[in-house]
Amino acid sequence: MKAFDYAAPASLPEAVGLLASQPAARLLAGGTDLLVQLRSGRKQADVVIDVKKIPELNEITLAADHSLTIGAAVPCYRLTDHPAVQAHYPALAEVASWIGGTQIQGRASLGGNLCNSAPSADSIPLLIALSASAHIAGSAGRRSVPVEAFCTAPGRNLLAPGELLVSLHIPAPAPHSGAAYLRFIPRNEMDIAVVGAGASLTLANGVIAAARLALSSVAPTPLFVPAAGDSLVGQAPTPAALEAAARLAQAAASPISDMRGSAAYRRHLCAVMARRALELALTRAQENH
């Protein structure tokens, strides 16, 4: 690993200022991706900016309407252990307990997972399903983008030079809604999704009022499939309807073959995992009064 300097700004303006003055800076939250990449030479840095001391990046805020704001550096375990997150966002608490293992969850954050922008990121399909938005700060001010627009290519995203992710915002869940993320991994833990699926589903008057579905590890970026969710709107939540939506997600996927799975196997799994995620989201929606 090449030598670098270290800075730990205590405020957002300080961090933004540092970023602006240091073109070869890298941001450090949990470090569970960054330090591996720096050590292997896949990434370089002249300075590493530790964002964990910035209060805004370290907060979990549940608003009165139950919308949720998660600071970009909040480590996963705090979401898993957070009673309100467990109560209102069980799928989120769950996915936070699946990223890496226990030790990794002591450090890794959903913000880092998003900024690392891996096609296989576990949290991103769920964030997309939950209609999350990413709050970004830079020297030109702040902006907010939907999570599904954030990643642009493997390991790339729309953060401009000098910008950083501040938080993730999840709108209040609708009544009778449920969400789920399921992934397929050959081991039971410590593995990268061969295919992952995030789903959310809202019921009203016995039919599906809204649904969103996104997949991981099947395209250059986490893949939002609006057509799959849209196909369910107005339908009764029958197995056939869920299966048809899953097939639409499968059709949208463009997986590759690599050491984690062949394209054919991934394509097969798309339909299975999408359907299972929809089924679990449905169960949760039915239980959520």
Partner: peptide
């Protein structure tokens, strides 16, 4: 069940880490 040297056509091992070599964990 899962362990193997996954080689590409050029003879590079593509899974030379404990993450992708997939030895059994306690949960397996």
């Amino acid at each position: 069940l899962n362990e193997e040297y996954f080689m590409d056509a050029a003879g590079d091992m593509r899974n030379g880490s404990y993450l992708d070599y997939r030895m059994p964990t306690a949960l397996d």
